[in-house]
């Protein structure tokens, strides 16, 4: 039985009070998406599926929602895959190999980790323009990946640091090259870290708004965050039922990924693999 500290109900009460506004927000989304009119969180209109009409038709001049969903999946999946792959290699090198400038590089990664990436928006814009990647999904994926890499490298370095040197020596004596050790020994041993980073970056990228909004113009490359935003800031009057439905539609995949990946995320915060 889990140990309950004294006054646990008081703690629970405080936590519940803090969480309440967020819960109310979610409640509003769920209720609002299935009702024609809502006062506060009280449904006053009729229950309806009308708000979900965006699933079958284009709303205004926006691209089909399925295009936006696919783009978001490609964006979040691409960022996740790239961050994990490149961070893993970089982190292994920093953790295990000695090369000139290693300490300097390590410091740089740490500084970049703390650096507000948004201040690089304009610079990134110019880079993408020069590369011809402006208004393309690949371009945003690259920018997002580079912004998330310092975090990924630091996280995975911690996991690689946890692998015993003797194990690596054993593999060397057994006849493996460093590249071979990286693939067949080190990577499988930090798998919890890789999964955690993959889930985390996927979720962050899924919710990312500023980068797609800045670097994507055409409707066919819209992500869901742009789609949702377009319903709030437009000339037409916001249809709150529709906004709620799209919002719920946007949240559901993220919730699914979180539910599947939460045990890896826990691993991430305890930062280490057990052998």
């Amino acid at each position: 039985m889990p140990l309950r500290p004294r006054g646990w109900w008081l703690i629970l009460l405080v936590l519940a009070a803090i969480t309440l506004p967020i819960v109310v927000g979610y409640l509003w989304i769920v209720i609002g998406s299935f009702n024609t009119r809502v006062h506060g969180i009280t449904p006053v209109g009729e229950w309806t599926l009308e708000n979900w009409r965006f699933l079958g038709e284009r709303v205004g001049r926006r691209p089909p929602i399925w295009t936006a969903l696919l783009n978001t999946l490609l964006f979040a999946g691409g960022v996740s895959l790239l961050v994990v792959t490149v961070s893993a290699m970089a982190a292994y090198a920093i953790s295990r190999l000695s090369f000139p400038g290693r300490g300097w590089f390590l410091g740089l990664v740490l500084v970049l980790h703390a650096f507000p990436a948004v201040s690089l928006l304009i610079a990134s814009y110019y880079v993408l323009r020069v590369l011809g990647l402006f208004d393309s999904l690949v371009g945003v994926v690259l920018v997002m990946t580079s912004f998330m890499m310092p975090f990924g490298i630091w996280l995975l370095k911690g996991f690689f640091d946890g692998i015993s040197w003797e194990m690596e020596m054993a593999a060397l004596v057994d006849g493996a090259s460093r590249w071979r050790i990286f693939r067949t020994i080190a990577l499988p041993l930090v798998r919890p870290g890789l999964f955690a980073l993959a889930v985390f970056t996927f979720l962050v990228a899924w919710g990312e708004f500023i980068l797609p909004y800045t670097f994507i113009v055409s409707g066919r490359t819209w992500t869901l965050s742009i789609y949702l935003q377009s319903m709030l800031g437009d000339f037409e009057r916001a249809d709150y039922g529709l906004v709620a439905a799209v919002g719920l539609f946007y949240i559901l995949p993220a919730v699914a990924v979180f539910l599947v990946g939460q045990r890896y995320l826990l691993d991430m915060y305890f930062g280490g693999s057990k052998g």
Binding site: S164, E166, M167, M169, A170, V173, G175, A176, I185, G275
Partner: peptide, 20 residues
């Protein structure tokens, strides 16, 4: 020579078996 070309076998204090 690289360890793999030396033809040695080694047993470590921690055994260093691959846990996976």
């Amino acid at each position: 020579l690289h360890p793999r070309d030396r033809d040695v076998g080694m047993v470590f204090q921690s055994y260093a078996l691959y846990p996976h």
